[in-house]
């Protein structure tokens, strides 16, 4: 184990090509050195706090004038509000609007964290499965409990496809059940995987920039990847949110 890493280090130092694409994801204490305990203030804490700060500035300070004719910052806040509000209403219907603040919280957190992660040298909180799994599990548990509370046992009708032929229904029920329990897995890995992969690829291209001959191509590639990552940052937040809405709709109206 130790010799392996040692050998890799030696090789890396020898060729001047140093790839550490995953180092950007390391969690480390913000002050001093030592173990990362549960309550240690780490770079995770810093970037989560910055996300809170960004959301506060955008949604609270930006709307503090309460202008009937909005300024620039208020327009952004209203745009975010309208975007998520319309999404919740379109997907889950009017009765889903009760849960709009929760979905707005998810969307604002993910989109802000994703974009903060695009700042060079920053730490991307949404690239960690620990973060996205918590989000996805929260959605999964909430939706499942809500489904049973709202519909009782008839929530299980979600798995019983009554429009299919009777013989197929048990098989479909198994498939539906599996797909239901895979939801939190795909929900969380999709977000973290996309963000992590993009950031790692940018780091790999950055490693190539050390070679003078390839560096122009490397810089171009980084630029292109960055553009793609900007899209991914928004699209993954959108996908996560709209899937949450879809799951919520299943809980509120479980029948196909």
């Amino acid at each position: 184990m130790a010799t392996e890493t040692h050998g890799a280090e030696a090789a890396a130092e020898g060729s001047s090509l140093v790839f550490h694409p995953m180092d950007q994801f390391i969690v480390k204490p913000l002050f001093g050195h030592g173990d990362v305990g549960m309550f240690t203030i780490t770079n995770v804490t810093l970037w989560l706090a910055l996300a809170i700060l960004a959301i506060f500035v955008m949604m609270v300070l930006g709307t503090s004038r309460r202008a009937v004719v909005p300024g620039r910052s208020q327009s952004v806040a209203e745009l975010a509000y309208g975007f998520v509000h319309k999404m919740v209403e379109d997907v889950t219907g009017k009765d889903g609007l009760k849960y709009f603040p929760y979905i707005m919280t998810l969307f604002m957190f993910i989109v802000t964290a994703n974009f903060l992660g695009l700042i060079p040298m920053s730490f991307t909180t949404t690239s960690h499965f620990a973060v996205t799994v918590v989000l996805a599990l929260a959605v999964f548990l909430t939706v499942t409990i809500l489904g049973f509370v709202k519909n009782g046992a008839s929530f299980l009708g979600l798995f019983w496809v009554s429009s299919a032929p009777l013989a197929l229904r048990p098989i479909l029920a198994i498939i539906e059940l599996i797909s239901y329990f895979v939801r939190p897995v795909s929900h969380s890995i999709r977000l973290a995987g996309n963000v992590m992969a993009g950031h790692a690829v940018i780091k790999v291209f950055a490693g190539f920039a050390a070679i003078a001959a390839i560096s122009p191509i490397s810089v171009l590639a980084i630029t292109a990847m960055y553009g793609l990552e900007v899209l991914v940052a928004f699209i993954q937040a959108y996908v996560f949110t709209i899937l949450t809405c879809v799951y919520l709709k299943d809980a509120l109206h479980p029948h196909h």
Partner: peptide
């Protein structure tokens, strides 16, 4: 690191 991340999250 999971505990730390989940706590702050």
């Amino acid at each position: 690191w999971i505990g730390n991340q989940v706590f702050w999250l």
